[in-house]
């Protein structure tokens, strides 16, 4: 492949990784705000959080992206396309991951919170020192699924001319005519990136489990069996 075409590959790879990583980080912020919001004692906080998760889970990421790119400018403000991509992906994945946060927080045994009250921790300390460190361990495996979903969804941005991996593949295909080969390479590329992210998450999972004095069997496909 010529160096000109290779540079498409690198640019595409860079943007795909950028969209995935920043989409995930921003999505994580949305997920925690909405997920904890849904566990709040205040009705209005719960309400806002619920509206966000219900609405944004229902929007296809692509439609959300079109909205950000084509509707927002009518209010006189043009979003950077890459940022619009990150935001659309983050809003969508954040709504899914919020449910993960909510479920994991709810799964912390009530006795843990009662012990924290008996030691007179403030509500914020209960959350930060007792609930979240335990809940996060339970969040990581489902977050891995969310992250892979996000990675796959990044390919949608090629439809608004952001030069991600899929967009680059289209360019290369157009200039070489090697349709089958290029799309095969694209599949392999996404597969390798997915494996890479899965491996990182597996590492995080093991670290988190260790913080609770548990062990997770090693290996990328090791099942999450927890030894007490």
């Amino acid at each position: 492949m010529s160096s000109g075409l290779m540079s498409y590959v690198w640019e595409g790879l860079g943007n795909t990784l950028l969209l995935t990583v920043f989409g995930a980080l921003l999505g994580l912020v949305f997920a925690f705000i909405a997920g904890l919001g849904r566990s709040s004692e205040r009705t209005w906080v719960r309400g806002i959080a619920m509206v966000y998760t219900e609405i944004f889970r229902g929007f296809p990421s692509l439609v959300l992206l079109f909205a950000l790119i084509f509707i927002v400018p009518t209010f006189g403000y043009q979003l950077n396309p890459l940022f619009a991509g990150i935001l659309a992906l983050a809003l969508n994945i954040g709504a899914y991951a919020a449910e993960v946060v909510r479920g994991a927080v709810k799964a912390v045994p009530p006795g843990q919170i009662e012990a924290a009250i008996a030691l007179n921790f403030t509500p914020w300390q209960r959350l930060r020192k007792v609930v979240l460190p335990q809940a996060v361990v339970a969040m990581i495996p489902p977050f891995t699924n969310n992250l892979i979903e996000l990675l796959k969804a990044t390919s949608l941005v090629s439809l608004v001319y952001i030069s991600d991996l899929t967009f680059s593949a289209q360019l290369i295909r157009a200039s070489t005519g090697e349709t089958a080969l290029v799309f095969f390479g694209l599949l392999v590329g996404y597969g390798v990136i997915a494996l890479f992210f899965t491996a990182i998450m597996k590492l995080l999972e093991r670290m988190a489990a260790r913080s609770l004095g548990r062990t997770v069997p090693s290996g990328l496909f090791g099942r999450k069996e927890v030894a007490a």
Binding site: P109, G111, Q112, E114, A115, A116, A118, K129, V130, P133, Q134, S211, L212, G213
Partner: peptide
């Protein structure tokens, strides 16, 4: 002190 200890596992 509780029946089920409730130590913080983290």
């Amino acid at each position: 002190v509780f029946q089920h200890f409730n130590l913080f596992p983290n």
